[in-house]
Each structure stands twice: as structure tokens, then as C-alpha cells.
Nucleic acid binder design. Sequence first.
DNA 1: TTATATGCAAAAGCTTTGCATGGGT
DNA 2: ACCCATGCAAAGCTTTTGCATATAA
Lengths: 147, 147
Amino acid sequence: MDAELRDRWLDHAQQQMTEAGRRSGAARTAVLTLLANEGQCLLTAQEITDRLRRAGAGSTASVYRIIDDLHQLGLLHRFDGGDGVARYEIADPEHHHHHLVDDRSGRVEPFTDERLERAIHDVADRLGVELTGHDVILRGHRRSAAD
Amino acid sequence: MDAELRDRWLDHAQQQMTEAGRRSGAARTAVLTLLANEGQCLLTAQEITDRLRRAGAGSTASVYRIIDDLHQLGLLHRFDGGDGVARYEIADPEHHHHHLVDDRSGRVEPFTDERLERAIHDVADRLGVELTGHDVILRGHRRSAAD
DNA sequence: TTATATGCAAAAGCTTTGCATGGGT
DNA sequence: ACCCATGCAAAGCTTTTGCATATAA
């Protein structure tokens, strides 16, 4: 689904990596392809490595190195959960969103809100800050009839 | 400064810990006192342990265990920075705030904004979520004349 | 007295680094 | 041909756990 977004990110990422002076190897190709296909949903380095291994390419070290490059180039967003494991998802300005963490199941759900975005940019203005990024994390659980 | 807030948090924390069925030991007393005095500013477990050791009380294990208890009781807020180290600060409803991280110096600065809070609660309502917590992290740098 | 807190040391888990090798340009 | 990317293994770091001892209640 949304093959256009996927390809757009992939193309952009490869171009950026090349421009940054990096060469294209088997591991990098595999990571980029995997992320382009299912990188919308917060993956850990471990998960990425496991999936690549099953496909016969990619090692722990390479995955961490590639992820790091992508993150530094702004192609990947990093999400530091409360469990000491970093999670990543592809960064696409057109699909900007935040995260709601269910405090019972640990499940993470994305959401967007225009007013929230406006409030954030206004605060940055008020503080005289040139914003390069922002994260919002909501913790809670679905309201049931009992609540 | 703000001795009242300090004492209020300290009293509240000790009471909560006792109600949770915990006993008061040397390490716990030392950690609570330290946090009450300088826990407004995001400390790592390492930093807390170091300061306690200098005072002759507290070990790595105890600090982590105590911090964990406090966090679970909602007496401490946890901040997962992008460097794989957790930072904590005392939780006081009257001093709710968010964080601005300078992407050049790494410095962290607290800020508050009413409209941002309202937007957050509205989003939670829209999602049908009972909010138990939320975090906002802004990344950027002070706007200079050059920007 | 009895259960809990403490502290040391060891273990665990995620992430990074060193180094030899293969592969891109 | 040159240099970077890769992968394995080892090291590094933060955080957790096991266990004997000290201590609060």
C-alpha cells in the first residue's frame, strides 16, 4: 500500500546516502528495502537484523551502522521507549505523526492533530527557537464504559 | 529555593513509599533527600549514585531499585534521551513542564505552554483515551540574527 | 524475630568497535 | 587499485539480578 511513498523514501534515502559519500553494499540495500516496505511501524535494530538474516543478508554491526547513518541524515526517526530499546521508523514529512502508548498493553498507535502542531510551532516561536524536530508521546488507555 | 516544594515532594514521597509497604533505609533516605534538593534537573542513575557515594551511602543496585519504585509510584518522571541513558526528575503536578533540547549543545531547558496542554488533552479526548501521562520534546536551537 | 533494604559482584541486554575480508567505484 | 562496506567476535555501557548481611518494624 502506498507504493509511491515507499519508493519516494527509498529513492530519496539512496540518493542522500550516496551524496553523503557512502557506498552501496548488500546490507545497506537490504535495510533500505526492508524499511521502505515496513518501516512505518517502529522497528528495533534487533527486529531488522532478524528479518534480514532470514533473507540471508545483514549483520548486527551493519544494521546498527546503517541505521545510525540514516538517522543522522534525518531519514529515520528514533523513538526511545521506556524499555531501553530504541525503535525507528522512516521519516517522511508528508506522514508526520506522533505516538500514543497504551499503558496496559504497551501497544503503540500513531495519531495526528493539526492544532497540536500549531501549538508546538507557536511555543517554539515564543521561545525564539528554530525547530528541527519534535516528539509527542501520550500514555494512557482506551476509555471503557467503566471509566 | 522553593523549600516548600522540596519539602512537599519529600513528605509526599516518603508517605507514598511507606503506604506502598516499603521500609526506610539509609540508601532510600539519601536518594530521596538528594532528589528533593536537586531533582528538578534530569539526573541519571549514575549521577545520583556518584553523589551518594561521595556522601558515603548508596550503591548502584539500591539507586536503581529506589528510582524504579519512585517511578512506578509516579513520583519521578523518566526522560529517555537519545543517548541510551535514562534521566529522571521529580514529578510535581504544580511544576508540570516539557523539554526543549538544544540540538547543538545538547542542553535541556524546561518550558510550559497552556495551549499545548489543552491541545494534548483534546487529542486524548478525540482518541477516546484516558490520559495517564504525556511528554513533549522539542529539538532545535536559539534563533540567531543569521537565521 | 521476621521480613525487607542494602551492597557487592556477577549477569544480562543493547549497542559499539576492532579487525580481516569481500565488494563497489 | 583503492578504499569503503560487511560480518564476526570482542568489548563497552547501562541496567538487572542473586545472594549474604545489616537493619527497620
